[in-house]
Write a protein that binds this DNA or RNA. Structure first.
Lengths: 212, 212
DNA sequence: CGCCGGACTGAATGACTATTCATTCACTTT
DNA sequence: AAAGTGAATGAATAGTCATTCAGTCCGGCG
């Protein structure tokens, strides 16, 4: 049972399991292209340049591929989001940065965006699993930023932060979904500014706008 | 086994194909419960009280079931939406009614809501098919109402109606999705008012709020 | 009556595919 | 060079299901 050489720098020690990453990347592309249910594990393996069985050395199951894509990306998103909130104090600017980050991330990787906006939403089974953890945290970040803004006096305090967070997230989500489905090819990230402007100022005309 | 229906008004003319409707209704319930891909056609048949083969007397394929659910509901939604726009003139009130209609429809039928918010979004294949027709029209209704409001002077005219329409739709969509996934059971329709308030007035505090 | 047409049935068919596992292979160690 | 190791392979397995179709059943008609 001799454990292999300790000082061997070769193989999987270079750092982040290159094969695992290759498979995840391939999964994103294949799922985006054919859809999760229509994609075969063998397709993913081929795209990653490995044999079908190899996928199972790194992932428990086909489901696990989808879950792993979600978790890895979401962790990054949460980390980036938290950093924005730390480094920026102005409530509006915070939300704007957050929105740009969100759309920027998806706009940079179309296939990832497809997996997030479309493939991940298959069946309530997945949805519940996802939305009850990382996604909840993500929404929580927005909610907290809004609540902070209310304390600052920058935002109205007669709206519930949770509702406002959902509205903002929903708006961004729709921009992303539309971008994916659109035949036109435009930059997604800049849309963040338009969304933020609407979210902050509303559509009502005139500076006094409020009330009915 | 004898069918009691003696002198039934010549076959299926009693109204609109009761069996077809039963199958569609069953499909909504089964898809909502198990998810489209995990649901078997035989499950739908059983829930509808017919044999598996009978489903194919009324629908071309399993896909066709999903498409039919979407199309039938969407046609109703479009019709109701158009009526609102006809009977109401005030821009804000129009949007409010529209939002209530939207959330009211989903809030009334949880399984239909699940099919719409989750199951229908499987794979870009379906999404593209759907979003390029009825859904586009639905968004168009919102967009036109907003453009009207701009002509009225009720809404700012420095926002693109298409963008504003997506923002509003996205916000409503997110409220619906959250409602489905939430363990809490609350009324969905009333949320429309909160969303509309935010969409019209924005989160910014103070009556002058605008600008940066 | 006996026969017709068509709605309906559900077992059988034909495909498809996630997952497994006996082998092979590329290296290392001794 | 011999032996060992575990990563990687990919053919075979074990199911799963959408869809079909040969037949059943029934009301009405001649």
């Amino acid at each position: 049972m001799a454990l292999p050489a300790v000082h061997r720098r070769s193989k999987a020690d270079v750092q982040p399991l290159p094969k695992r990453d290759a498979i995840l990347r391939a999964a994103i592309d294949v799922f985006a292209d054919r859809g999760y249910f229509n994609a075969q594990v063998a397709d993913v393996a081929r795209a990653a340049g490995v044999a079908a069985g190899t996928v199972y050395l790194y992932f428990r199951s086909k489901d696990d591929l989808l879950v792993s894509i979600f978790e890895r990306s979401m962790r990054v998103a949460l980390e980036e989001g938290r950093q924005v909130l730390e480094r920026t104090r102005d409530p509006r600017e915070r939300l704007r940065q957050f929105a740009r980050l969100h759309l920027g991330r998806l706009g940079r990787d179309r296939n990832l965006a497809i997996v997030f906006q479309v493939e991940l939403r298959q069946s309530t089974k997945f949805m519940e699993r996802f939305s009850s953890t990382l996604l909840r945290d993500y929404l929580g970040l927005i909610r907290d930023a809004i609540a902070d803004g209310q304390r600052d006096g920058a935002f109205r305090d007669d709206v519930k932060p949770t509702v406002a967070a959902k509205v903002l997230f929903g708006a961004l989500d729709e921009m992303a979904t539309n971008w994916i489905l659109s035949k036109r090819r435009y930059a997604l990230e800049p849309e963040a500014d338009a969304v933020l402007d609407l979210f902050v100022n509303g559509v009502a005309a005139g500076p006094k706008g409020r009330g009915r």
